[in-house]
């Protein structure tokens, strides 16, 4: 057997021995749990580029949320957004119209992959985490220039849920999300320089 293999085996053996020695029912690790939820809510985003200055949008959103792990959890916050209001008023132009009548289709997708920590208080669970955020948006129109962007940056998630009933199976919750993107993933002449987005979703889900 090669020396590297021997060293690895020794390390594994030592670690399991230590784990066995420290085994204590009170300190036993909780099982891995998974929580799936869907939700509806409202979102906003603000972006700026050299060609447009600041433009802000907001509207309803529909999301799918997931987290998995023990105390340290992997989190996914994903949603489809439907901007219904868009505004800008700067040296590049002024717009205060109704997006739903001027642009169709008008939608976006938004996802944050994060790592966070869970705290439990009686019937309530709080998970807070941070990670990578991506957002894509497409507003199209027959008369107006399409607005298309795909951006990437960092995002944070705060997830609060209350269990329904005695079994910790179903839950309702609130999901808050904020992100800042500084990278435009499209090879465009006038790129998005900065995008800020936030949302709140009311959720219902299942944990097992």
């Amino acid at each position: 057997m090669r020396p590297l293999h021997l060293i690895l085996m020794a390390l594994i053996l030592a670690s399991t021995t230590v784990a066995e020695a420290k085994k204590d029912p009170e300190r036993e690790r909780e099982p891995i749990t998974r929580a799936h939820a869907v939700g509806v809510g409202y979102y906003f985003h603000w972006l700026t580029s050299d060609n447009t200055g600041g433009m802000r949008f907001h509207g309803p959103s529909v999301g799918y949320l997931y987290d998995r792990g023990r105390k340290i959890r992997f989190l996914l916050h994903s949603k489809v957004v439907f901007p219904v209001v868009g505004r800008m008023d700067n040296e590049h132009g002024k717009y205060d119209g109704k997006l739903r009548s001027d642009y169709s289709p008008a939608w976006g997708v938004d996802a944050t992959f994060a790592v966070g920590r869970k705290w439990e208080f009686d019937d309530m669970t709080l998970v807070v985490g941070g990670g990578v955020h991506m957002m894509g948006m497409r507003l199209n129109s027959s008369e107006l220039y399409a607005i298309e962007s795909v951006t990437m940056g960092a995002g944070g998630i705060a997830r609060l849920r209350w269990k329904l009933g005695q079994k910790d199976l179903f839950h309702v919750g609130v999901d808050g999300h904020f992100a800042a993107d500084v990278f435009s993933l499209l090879r465009q002449q006038n790129k998005v320089n900065l995008l800020l987005t936030g949302s709140v979703l009311g959720t219902i889900g299942i944990k097992f």
Binding site: N51, T52, G93, E143, Y145, I147, V150, L186, Q188
Partner: peptide, 22 residues
């Protein structure tokens, strides 16, 4: 599909809201 959708974008980039194509 998402990659295709977003790579098939207007390379001109972001335009002000309400800008006419013509």
């Amino acid at each position: 599909a998402a990659g295709l959708l977003f790579s098939a974008c207007d390379k001109g980039g972001i335009h002000p809201l309400g800008s006419s194509k013509d």
